[in-house]
């Protein structure tokens, strides 16, 4: 079998993965007022990791991103549930949210909401689930 030559695929992937990750983080933070949110941001993140897995191989990605994605799924679900339970401490119904405006050093007047923490948990759960499914389908033993 001759040595595969995919220079173009590797070069395009190294540029495109950065763009896709940036766009998915932008989608994640846009989710409070505009289309977007934790679910689609997590799916974009997972598609960037899929592109890395396609262009390179499993061993290379495991070596450079040494994260167990099942732990990511569990911690994401835990963050989402704990955010919901946190509202019970302040005598509010389960999963109720609040927001306020703060003066941050660089951003100026910024709206910080507790729903973003819940969204972060959802994003972590989606990333972990999607990458775990893809990795366990790709295992051919």
């Amino acid at each position: 079998m001759k040595k595969p030559n995919d220079v173009i695929l590797h070069s395009v992937t190294k540029v495109a993965v950065v763009i896709i990750l940036t766009f998915s983080i932008d989608l994640f933070f846009a989710g409070h007022h505009d289309p977007g949110g934790g679910f689609i941001g997590g799916l974009g993140f997972a598609s960037a990791l899929t592109l890395l897995l396609l262009a390179f191989d499993i061993e290379w990605v495991r070596e450079n991103i040494p994260i167990d994605f099942k732990v990511i799924t569990a911690s994401g679900v835990l963050i989402a549930v704990l955010t919901g339970l946190g509202s019970l401490v302040f005598d509010a119904p389960f999963l109720s949210q609040t927001f306020n405006y703060f003066n941050l050093p660089i951003f100026g007047k910024t709206e910080l909401a507790t729903a973003v923490i819940f969204d972060f948990g959802v994003a972590l759960a989606v990333i972990g689930t999607a990458v775990t499914i893809i990795l366990s389908i790709a295992e051919d033993r």
Binding site: I20, S47, L51, L54, I58, W60, A138, D140
Partner: peptide
Amino acid sequence: ILSFVGTIAFARFIERGVVIERKR
């Protein structure tokens, strides 16, 4: 993004017979 990733996956499957390699 999704059509780009999908087309690359199909092209790899046709060219190599395997979508995600274990060790290249």
